[in-house]
């Protein structure tokens, strides 16, 4: 729930660090006036005072309470302004908003995570939350893609520590390789294999650009995943964040309030879900 009586009122958050993740993505480390306790997959509305507000899913682990990290790709007016902002600035935060991943329902299962590009940001939060209690799950199998090796975010951990975690298996791919790249080349669906997980006892989590989510979902269905086994983090124009303003409507759902995490079975019959 929002901590304010006025749901449109942000609280202040000091920008304490900025990390360059890729040529177009930066991570912003924020220290909110008071901790914002969220679940992986929930989102916040980040205000650049006087410029605008935009929705982002934190990339930090929910158990990290005093600070919050948000990875942001330069895409529109607010994000362009954010990329110019210097450490020490005060930004505004509203949240947490929406429904995140139902992690408790994943217990005893294999978790098949498919991510692409900046979609790795919300997945990092989920991944770290899952790793904290990895004994609850049979395995965590990750498949990530980026345009080029430079475009991967969280390179240090993605290429390093995360690969060494027991019970975690990570495979990476790039659309276009450079000289040093030894792994797969191709879109993320080229590293999805039907025997990556035992589908009958698995859930899939897909997050990335809409086109990637579409083809990854179709691939998973082809492998035999049922629509209610596929969890999608939908990107729509979430403005008010509380199911009132109407911008993010996807069929009868307000993505901001009923999502942003949906199972494919919830939304598959609505038109243009990937647009």
């Amino acid at each position: 729930m929002i901590s304010h009586k006025n749901p449109y009122q942000p609280i202040g958050a000091e920008l304490i660090n900025i990390i360059d993740e890729s040529p177009t993505i930066k991570s912003f480390v924020l220290k909110p006036e008071k901790p914002i306790i969220f679940e992986a997959g929930q989102f916040v509305e980040l205000t650049v005072p006087g410029c605008g507000e935009a929705p982002f899913t934190p990339s930090s682990v929910p158990s990290q309470k005093d600070t919050m990290e948000i990875s942001i790709m330069k895409a529109g007016k607010v994000t362009a302004q954010l990329h110019e902002i210097k450490k020490g600035a005060t930004l505004g935060l509203r949240g947490p908003l929406g429904k995140g991943y139902p992690i408790d329902n994943f217990c005893g299962k294999e978790i098949y995570i498919v991510g692409g590009g900046v979609g790795l940001a919300p997945i990092r939060s989920l991944f770290l939350a899952l790793v904290e209690r990895k004994k609850d799950f049979v395995s965590i199998v990750c498949r990530y893609g980026a345009k080029t090796p430079e475009d991967f975010i969280y390179k240090k951990t993605l290429f390093g520590d995360w690969q060494k975690i027991d019970g975690v298996q990570i495979k990476l791919t790039v659309d276009k390789a450079n000289g040093q790249w030894k792994d797969n080349v191709g879109v993320v669906t080229t590293i999805l294999k039907p025997d990556d997980v035992k589908i009958a006892n698995a859930v899939a989590v897909v997050c990335g650009p809409p086109i990637m989510m579409k083809f990854a979902t179709l691939k998973l269905l082809e492998f035999g995943f049922k629509p209610d086994q596929i969890y999608l983090s939908m990107e729509k124009n979430m403005s008010c964040g509380i199911g009132l303003c109407g911008h993010c409507m996807l069929g009868k759902y307000y993505v901001c309030k009923d999502g942003p995490v949906f199972t494919y079975s919830q939304i598959k019959d609505y038109p243009k879900i990937w647009d």
């Binding site: 449109y8 009122q9 650049v48 006087g50 607010v78 990107e235 729509k236 124009n237």
Partner: peptide
């Protein structure tokens, strides 16, 4: 829609009528 703006000596968030008939109404930054 919520419109952020600079007022006299503070920043304001205005709540203003919008229309789902507007072309960019549901567009996202990407």
């Amino acid at each position: 829609y919520l419109h952020d703006t600079e007022l006299k000596n503070y920043y304001g968030k205005m709540k203003m009528w919008d229309s789902c008939m507007r072309m960019s109404y549901a567009a996202v930054a990407g």
